[in-house]
Design a protein around this nucleic acid. Structure first.
Length: 422
RNA sequence: GGGGAGAUAGCCAAGUGGCCAACGGCAACAGACUGUAAAUCUGUCCUCUUCGGAGUUCGAAGGUUCGAAUCCUUCUCUCCCCA
């Protein structure tokens, strides 16, 4: 199976420039994907692009990862309803470093693959030269016809964002000319920018370049992929703990999980088909979700963090009872709860008993206000040490502590908090 | 430069002197059901609250009025048409 066929059955092919498949069959191709340094860490949305590069490498080609030190200063209008605020150069530099370090975890840039930053070729490029060398080749009507621009004409787009496609287009040209990169990959929202690049290569360099895009990952219910009530799911373990990361995938719907296993794992076709089939027969086992969560957590965080996330999951969502929790030794206990949101409070507060609302909203920030805490308790959304707690005027004292030190709180079924009395 | 339309809670959107903390929908959170799924049903959804209430909102600032999201004035911004 070749690269393009692989992408097809995995549901990873959206658009492709004619001739791309032939080129890939004929020679070892250098292909690149750009990553925007909009934050210090990538999130799981970018994971698709990373996996795409990994597939490219597995099929014997040479992946290039471009970090947009220059493009990040401009702001891509693609898919954005309004003008973005610009990042300071200081933050940008931090983001570039963060993103580069993450990419290194997935692709070995010492063995053929390359990591580049487009700031390298833009920092010395002055405005007049750019206008003469690049701008002259692309007409305004061509640029305005792009979806990313067209959608913004009525609501407003600055000249800065308007020119974004030329900057990105030039990246492709530069890589084509200096590094022999003939292929650009990206999300489907990047199609317009990518095509501007191939156009520049044709007009300035008289050469041919190729591209393919992957579809945007969607959820069956139409809501945005990669977001939870806590916000983005990040690849950085400090921003999203491996436990939370594992839980995110485990919570996928059946329909989504069947899609994700093809996109986010490298499992073979027949294995995936078997897992999906088994899941159809015994959906309550959730083996499909477990497999997806397992594979991608291992890829992003490694074997050790994976097993930590799995043991925490087993305790929190298994048949665990209060007794089981209190019998656990402290070392294991803390290890399991490593990825769970934690709050510390003074043990002395509990000596004479503490009002439950104060504990939840004043001494800790499990809830943002006492009013909210009260409402949640009234809705029967709170559990302490795995038992429903329904009295909004209740008093908590030291006897509730596990190991004389801990309280395990649950907001709803899925959100856990560990309170530590010190 | 001339003419027109508009700005309401995270988003969409109704309201055009008191019954408005503001209809409805989406998103979100929680409960029931279940499989940590989907669908469905129920509750919450400006802030705080001793759950009785209290405080601050309808682009901004003033004004009229017993009373303004609603009327008047000025300003800011967005879109459309003409030049």
């Amino acid at each position: 199976m070749n690269f393009v066929e692989e992408l097809k059955w995995r549901g990873l092919l959206h658009d492709i420039i004619p001739g791309t498949e032939e080129l890939l069959a004929k020679e070892k191709v250098k292909g690149y994907i750009g990553f925007d340094p909009t934050a210090e860490s990538l999130h799981i949305g970018s994971m698709v692009q990373i996996i795409l590069l990994m597939h490219l490498e597995r099929h014997g080609h040479k992946p290039f990862a471009l970090v947009g030190g220059a493009t990040g200063m401009i702001g891509d209008p693609s898919g954005k309803a309004e003008e973005r605020s610009m990042l300071s150069e200081e933050i940008l530099q931090k983001n570039v470093n963060g993103v580069e370090n993450q990419l290194r975890k997935f692709i070995d840039f010492d063995k053929g693959a390359e990591l580049v930053n487009n700031y390298e070729w833009f920092k010395e490029f002055n405005l007049l030269s750019f206008l003469r060398e690049v701008g002259k080749h692309i007409s305004v009507s061509y640029m305005m016809a792009k979806d990313s621009v067209k959608k913004r004409l009525e609501t407003g787009i600055s000249f800065t964002e308007f020119s974004y496609q030329l900057i990105q287009g030039y990246d492709f040209y530069w890589l084509w000319k200096n590094k022999d990169v003939k292929l650009q990959l990206g999300g489907s929202d990047q199609w317009g920018n990518i095509v501007t690049g191939t156009e520049l290569i044709r007009r300035i360099g008289g050469g041919e370049a190729y591209a393919l895009t992957v579809p945007l990952v969607t959820k069956a219910d139409g809501t945005k992929f990669g977001k939870t009530e806590q916000g983005n799911i990040w690849l950085d373990a400090n921003l999203t703990s491996p436990y939370q990361f594992y839980q995110f995938w485990l919570n996928s719907s059946d329909e989504d999980a069947a899609k994700y296993i093809k996109i986010f794992t490298f499992l073979e076709k027949d294995i995936i088909e078997r897992i999906i089939q088994e899941h159809l027969e015994q959906p309550h086992l959730r083996n499909l979700q477990k497999k997806v969560a397992e594979e991608i957590t291992r890829l992003v965080h490694g074997e050790e963090e994976l097993s930590g996330a799995q043991s925490a999951t087993a305790v929190l969502f298994g048949q665990g009872t209060t007794e089981q929790l209190s019998q656990m030794n402290e070392h294991l206990f803390l290890q399991i709860f490593e990825g769970v949101t934690q709050f510390k409070f003074a043990a002395s507060e509990l000596e004479n008993g503490l009002n439950i609302l104060d504990l939840l909203a004043v001494n800790t920030q499990v809830f943002s206000s006492k009013g909210e805490a009260r409402k949640m308790i009234q809705q029967q959304a709170l559990s302490i040490n795995k038992q429903k707690y329904i009295d909004p005027n209740g008093i908590i004292d030291s006897s509730a502590l596990l190991n004389n030190k801990y309280l395990l709180l649950q907001k709803g079924k899925k959100q856990y908090f560990l309170l530590i009395a010190e």
